[in-house]
Design a protein around this nucleic acid. Structure first.
Length: 394
DNA sequence: CAGGTC
DNA sequence: ACTGG
């Protein structure tokens, strides 16, 4: 049976392209809630589906290494027979016009350059932003290499319909189940099956809502099926990709006509798959960042993001960072995630990992990136809860 | 309460 | 409203 490859055993299976870790950090970029389809299958090795194929990626200081697995062949009766007779009917992959390994590898490298948008120099952008924005510089110095992916628009749209009122770890599981239930199987590695993302027509089928409810999608099940059906019925299968050639605000409003797609999801799709780098998705994290780190005046203590507040915060960051504001947002968003908090403390002292439970009650006062003392997480949360209680008892 | 929406 | 870390 096929298994996940690792770089240290079998260098012949790998190809690479030049790419500095200052431009790309796989661990941050692939696990920060842009795409939900990558898993760390071995230390520093990330396996996922991209462009209808299964890839494992890893990196060294100045190169990005990749391996593409051959898709599992469809096994119908005839082809099984053909396998026993070598001169039999060639399978689908062999029928394709002959491509040399060289050409194949060139295409794969090009797919990766596109997916990671390596033509955009993140280092230049960060230097520019950091010069005028002290907080950004401090964060970007630690979270160097977070990039914006250029995802498939259909996958991006339907994945982000799943994100409302949800958290990343559950979203990952839901997207995985979505692909297993409705996507074409590609191959299996170490007992793990990999599937392509479902097509629009698979998502639009009337049986989909009930099926997804059974898989734990809750009320989002209906949004997924209805959005797919609406796109096919009123626009056609190429509609979403066509939004790449349309101005940001027009694409955003077009997406918002779909059920389950509000301002935030529409901005995520614009930013992460439709080539709109100025789109700034404002979620709870970004709202907190605006208030906490940029002293954004949310004067009347709003409980939820109103349309106006949403627009104002987006405009604030666009004014601060310019036409690639969405890329800047992604760096701070990543730095705000719980799972990456450990990176921040590694700057000063490297603590041995032994102490886990023993020092738990030792409260450390952390400093934020501007050097200001801040409360510990728990205290911060306590405070937030109290203020929420006050609001609700009024 | 979670990368919100109807 | 769904649901689980």
């Amino acid at each position: 049976m096929a298994s996940h490859v690792v770089l240290t055993s079998g260098a012949k299976l790998w190809r690479s392209l030049p790419c500095l870790t200052s431009e790309l950090r796989l661990d941050l970029t692939l696990a920060c809630g842009q795409s939900f389809r990558w898993r760390e299958t071995a230390e520093g090795h990330w396996t996922g589906v991209m462009g209808g194929r299964v890839w494992t990626l890893t990196q060294t200081d100045d190169r990005l290494w990749y391996h593409v697995y051959t898709n599992q062949k469809k096994r119908r009766g005839r082809e099984n027979r053909a396998e026993e007779q070598p001169e039999g009917v060639p399978n689908v992959e062999e029928e394709a016009p002959a491509v040399t390994d060289e050409q194949q590898s060139t295409m794969e490298a090009e797919m990766l350059r596109e997916y990671f948008q390596l033509h955009v120099k993140m280092e230049d952008l960060c230097r520019h932003w950091g010069a005028a924005d002290r907080h950004f510089k401090n964060t970007a110095d630690v979270f160097t290499g977070v990039r914006m992916l250029r995802q498939d628009p259909t996958e991006c749209l339907f994945s982000f319909i799943c994100t409302s009122n949800n958290h990343i770890s559950r979203i990952q599981g839901m997207v995985e189940r979505l692909c297993q239930a409705l996507g074409v199987p590609l191959c299996q590695l170490d007992q793990t099956p990999y599937h392509d993302f479902p097509t629009l027509s698979a998502l639009a089928d009337s049986s989909v809502e009930a099926r997804l409810r059974d898989l734990g999608f809750g009320y989002r099940a209906r949004y997924l099926q209805q959005s797919a059906k609406m796109i096919l019925d009123t626009h056609g299968s190429q509609w979403i990709e066509g939004l790449r050639r349309v101005p940001y605000l027009e694409a955003r409003e077009a997406l918002r006509t779909l059920p389950g797609v509000g301002a935030k999801v529409a901005d995520c799709v614009c930013l992460m798959s439709l080539d709109k780098p100025e789109a700034v998705p404002v979620d709870t994290h970004v709202w907190q960042i605006a208030k906490r780190d940029y002293k954004y005046a949310a004067d009347n203590g709003q409980k939820s993001l109103t349309d106006k507040l949403y627009k104002d915060i987006g405009d604030f960051f666009r004014k601060l960072w310019g036409p690639y504001a969405g890329w800047g947002q992604s760096v701070l968003f990543c730095a705000d995630l719980k799972k990456f908090q450990n990176l921040k403390e590694m700057g000063h002292v490297k603590q041995p990992k032994k102490e886990k439970e023993t020092h738990k009650r030792c409260k450390k006062t952390k400093k934020d990136f501007d050097g200001n003392k801040i409360k510990t997480e728990s205290e911060y949360r306590k405070k937030a809860k109290i203020s929420v209680k006050k609001e609700s008892t009024l």
